[in-house]
């Protein structure tokens, strides 16, 4: 396993794409979070919002580069035919796939930590100018900690979900279409649905709206799911995609 990991890490660091994608993830997350924090306006009787969730809203955008990296790690090799070289070098396919998943996890988690902490810091700085410093606006530290670690885990899980989908689909453009559709379309679909019951069901089921409940620090009762359970739904999606991808890689001709 260690040689396979060493090989995958070498692959990632010897081309420019992954580095740029991770930089893009950090930039997109921090930029959107900062922009959202600066346009928010507080009414006279208080802000009423969730400052931590607001500071982390950039994750909605930052997940796209993470998803693209997850896709490219495997579908890029199917596109060029290099997957044959990879599987010739590491013929135990589950090992080869697991090495990709572990390397991706490490890289995305590291970049996501920077992105999430940067967003929180930017949000804090900007929101303090908007009067969020008052005590009622500050959630408990443990809740902020949950939102922070949860967001980092969420971004990592999205990377893994994309890896699994790409292992099934194998074409990079189609995989990206599928994953971005899955992430962004389902919440929109929930808006289009008139029946509140079904709306809530869909929000509990969709990987993005369920997973991002982990960012909430106030008004927890209105969430479709409890925060960790929501992240668990996203983890379930990622696990299902990885298992499907792993099984297909094992059984299908390369």
């Amino acid at each position: 396993m260690r040689p396979a990991l060493h090989a995958e890490w070498t692959k990632l660091r010897t081309v420019a794409g992954p580095g740029w994608l991770m930089l893009g993830m950090i930039a997109a997350t921090v930029a959107l979070s900062a922009a959202a924090a600066s346009v928010v306006t507080c009414a006279a009787d208080g802000c009423g919002g969730d400052p931590t969730k607001l500071s982390l809203v950039g994750v909605v955008l930052g997940q796209a580069p993470a998803a693209v990296l997850g896709v490219l790690v495997i579908s890029g090799e199917y596109g060029s035919g290099m997957i044959h070289t990879t599987l010739t070098a590491v013929p135990h396919r589950v090992t080869a796939f697991a090495a990709k998943a572990i390397t991706l996890t490490g890289v995305v988690a590291a970049a996501a930590t920077i992105a999430v902490l940067g967003s929180l810091l930017a949000g804090r700085l900007i929101l303090s100018h908007h009067g969020f410093t008052a005590a009622p606006g500050r959630p408990a530290l443990s809740l902020t900690l949950r939102a922070t670690t949860g967001s980092i885990l969420y971004l990592t899980l999205i990377g893994l979900l994309s890896l699994g989908i790409a292992a099934v689909v194998r074409n990079s453009a189609t995989s990206i279409g599928v994953i971005l559709g899955l992430l962004y379309l389902l919440p929109l679909l929930a808006q289009a649905i008139g029946d509140p019951h079904w709306q809530r069901r869909l929000e509990q089921f969709a990987p993005m709206s369920a997973g991002l409940t982990v960012q909430a620090t106030t008004d927890l009762g209105s969430l479709p799911l409890s925060p960790w359970a929501g992240l668990g739904v996203t983890a379930g999606w990622a696990a299902a995609a990885l298992v499907a991808g792993g099984l297909l890689i094992r059984t299908r001709d390369a």
């Binding site: 990079s172 453009a173 971005l180």
Partner: peptide, 13 residues
Amino acid sequence: SAAAVTSVIGAVV
């Protein structure tokens, strides 16, 4: 293809 799909979907999404 990956870059094209990502950037156009990004510009619309």
